[in-house]
Simulated assay, not measured.
Amino acid sequence: MEKAIILSFLLVSLLSSSHAADFCVADLTAAPTPPATPAEESALTADDFVFTGLGMAGNTSNIIKAAVTPAFVGQFPATNGLGISAGRLDLAKGGVIPFHTHPGASEVLIVTQGSICAGFVTSSNKVYTKTLKKGDSMIFPQGLLHFQLNAAGVTSVAIVSFSSPEPGLQILDFALFGNNLKTALIEAVTFLDAATIKKLKGVLGGTM
């Protein structure tokens, strides 16, 4: 009898725990906490689990002729706590996503239109590159420098997914030339000459 009571208690506890862990849709109106404060389940509808933004082309009228439309936890609260997120990549003719990293996630890219040359560099400086066509996909391991470049004469599009709702992003060129890092320091650590550094700072918005 005592064993039956204990088993019943454990079963109820497991069922309760399982239900509580189904999802944790973020309440973006609340003060952020790690993980984000969950919304009340009673107030949720099917729309809270749907994101429509990836169906629209991004604005590629910029210096890199590219756009990334994120569906991270900040845009798609349902991804909170689930270890996933997504995005859309639009590359106009000549468009490029420069070398960058996602410190918080690995990435998989699936080409849906056009052609994209993509690649990454390992921590031992081995380079992996591939020109991808529609339907092809490529993996970029967490934290490694990688890039995407339009390899077609028309706009190319890809859907990307990440192993975290907050993958993070740091673009190498902007980290070096888009801020107030002193020209002399950049010259010392990159072996670039001061004239080149100042030219890049002027293009990317950094101070001299």
Score class of each variant (00 low, 15 high):
Ser161Gln: 09
Ser161Asn: 08
Ser161Pro: 05
Ser161Leu: 00
Phe162Glu: 00
Ser163Arg: 01
Ser163Phe: 00
Ser163Ala: 02
Ser164Arg: 08
Ser164Met: 03
Ser164Gly: 04
Ser164Trp: 03
Ser164Tyr: 02
Pro165Lys: 03
Pro165Phe: 01
Pro165Cys: 00
Pro165Trp: 00
Pro165Tyr: 07
Glu166Cys: 12
Glu166Pro: 05
Glu166His: 09
Glu166Arg: 11
Pro167Asp: 01
Pro167Asn: 04
Gly168Ile: 07
Gly168Cys: 01
Leu169Phe: 12
Leu169Tyr: 07
Leu169Lys: 12
Leu169Gly: 02
Ile171Cys: 09
Ile171Trp: 01
Ile171Tyr: 10
Ile171Gln: 14
Leu172Ala: 11
Leu172Ser: 09
Asp173Phe: 05
Asp173Cys: 15
Asp173Ala: 15
Asp173Gln: 13
Phe174Trp: 14
Phe174Glu: 14
Phe174Ser: 11
Phe174Ala: 05
Phe174Val: 15
Ala175His: 07
Ala175Leu: 09
Ala175Ser: 15
Ala175Gly: 15
Ala175Ile: 12
Ala175Val: 10
Leu176Trp: 02
Leu176Asp: 12
Leu176Cys: 05
Phe177Cys: 01
Gly178Glu: 00
Asn179Tyr: 04
Asn180Pro: 00
Asn180Cys: 09
Asn180Phe: 15
Leu181Val: 15
Leu181Asn: 13
Lys182Met: 03
Lys182Thr: 07
Lys182Gln: 15
Lys182Gly: 12
Thr183Arg: 04
Thr183Trp: 02
Ala184Tyr: 13
Ala184Lys: 15
Ala184Met: 01
Ala184Ser: 14
Ala184Asn: 09
Leu185Met: 06
Leu185Gly: 09
Ile186Met: 04
Ile186Gly: 01
Ile186Asn: 03
Ile186Thr: 10
Glu187Lys: 15
Glu187Met: 01
Glu187Gly: 02
Ala188Gln: 13
Ala188Cys: 06
Val189Arg: 00
Val189Tyr: 00
Val189Met: 06
Val189Leu: 06
Val189His: 02
Thr190Arg: 09
Thr190Met: 00
Thr190His: 04
Thr190Phe: 01
Thr190Pro: 04
Thr190Tyr: 01
Phe191Asp: 11
Phe191Arg: 10
Leu192Lys: 08
Leu192Arg: 05
Leu192Pro: 00
Asp193Val: 03
Asp193His: 12
Asp193Met: 04
Asp193Trp: 07
Asp193Gln: 00
Ala194Trp: 03
Ala194Gln: 08
Ala194Leu: 11
Ala195Arg: 12
Ala195Ser: 14
Ala195Lys: 14
Ala195Val: 13
Ala195Glu: 15
Ala195Leu: 02
Ala195Gln: 13
Thr196Lys: 10
Thr196His: 07
Thr196Phe: 10
Thr196Gly: 11
Thr196Trp: 00
Thr196Asp: 12
Ile197Phe: 00
Ile197Glu: 05
Ile197Gln: 05
Ile197Tyr: 02
Ile197Gly: 02
Lys198Leu: 11
Lys198Glu: 15
Lys198Tyr: 08
Lys198Thr: 14
Lys198Trp: 10
Lys198Ser: 14
Lys199Met: 14
Leu200Gly: 03
Leu200Lys: 03
Lys201His: 08
Lys201Cys: 06
Lys201Val: 06
Lys201Leu: 03
Gly202Phe: 01
Gly202Arg: 06
Gly202Gln: 05
Gly202Glu: 05
Val203Leu: 14
Val203Ala: 13
Val203Thr: 13
Leu204Asn: 09
Leu204Gln: 12
Leu204Trp: 10
Gly205Met: 13
Gly205Tyr: 13
Gly205Pro: 01
Gly206Met: 07
Gly206Leu: 08
Gly206Thr: 08
Thr207Cys: 07
